[in-house]
Amino acid sequence: MTNNELKNNSQNRTLKQWLFNPFQFIAGGNALFLGLVIMLAAAFLGSLGDLHFDGVIDLHIGKPAPLWFFIAEVLIDWLCLSIVLLIAAFFVSRSSFRIIDVFGTQALARTPYLAALLVIMPKGFNRFAEYLAAKGMQQPTTITIESTDVLLFIVGIVVVLSMLVWMVALMYRAYSVSCNTKGGKAIISFIAGLIIAEILSIVSIWQLALRTGLR
């Protein structure tokens, strides 16, 4: 196969490949840089609407906090999952792998949550969420909701859940490509890693909030 043929082959890429396995084409330092930019953008947008990434796969409306706390949250989430999956890969993968690929691809895998933020940022979503919370706890509320708030809320929930599924699929692909893991072992180790990382990140963010007086 000539170099030209190889270049032609590489152009036969589908949108599906880019959406669900971009790590075939991008990894290492490039993915890390792009992922960090996306995470910082997500932290900044989150700080504008008090949307906290308080766990590896969590996105909640919370109390106001300084920008650094939102940045710390996204970094803790990313580091917890990357480190746990890196340790899992040492046991599961039979081939060598680069640490920068694991961290880079996991950073880029968090892209869907940036899209989710854009959908749930409008005030109408928060207003209806607060209204539901007050009703759920049977507390009196002065919140007045508009007819569009319900629609915004339903659309927001559907989009967030879709983005969550997409993000977890990307995280698995990132793990599979960067560590060359396949089959049952890969799936089981990923699920176990995700659960451990989720617990670790929640505890770490909680501790950070406690120690800095934000809770």
Binding site: M1, N3, L6, K7, N9, S10, Q11, F23, Q24, F25, I26, A27, G28, A31, S95, S96, F97, R98, D101, T105, V177, S178, N180
Partner: peptide
Amino acid sequence: VQFVRCSGSLKEMARLQKLSYPTVRN
């Protein structure tokens, strides 16, 4: 054949095929 042509450089292969390094290594 391509691997030998690239003198065994996975980075060079990844660059030519426009694929990521771990994909070529896999």
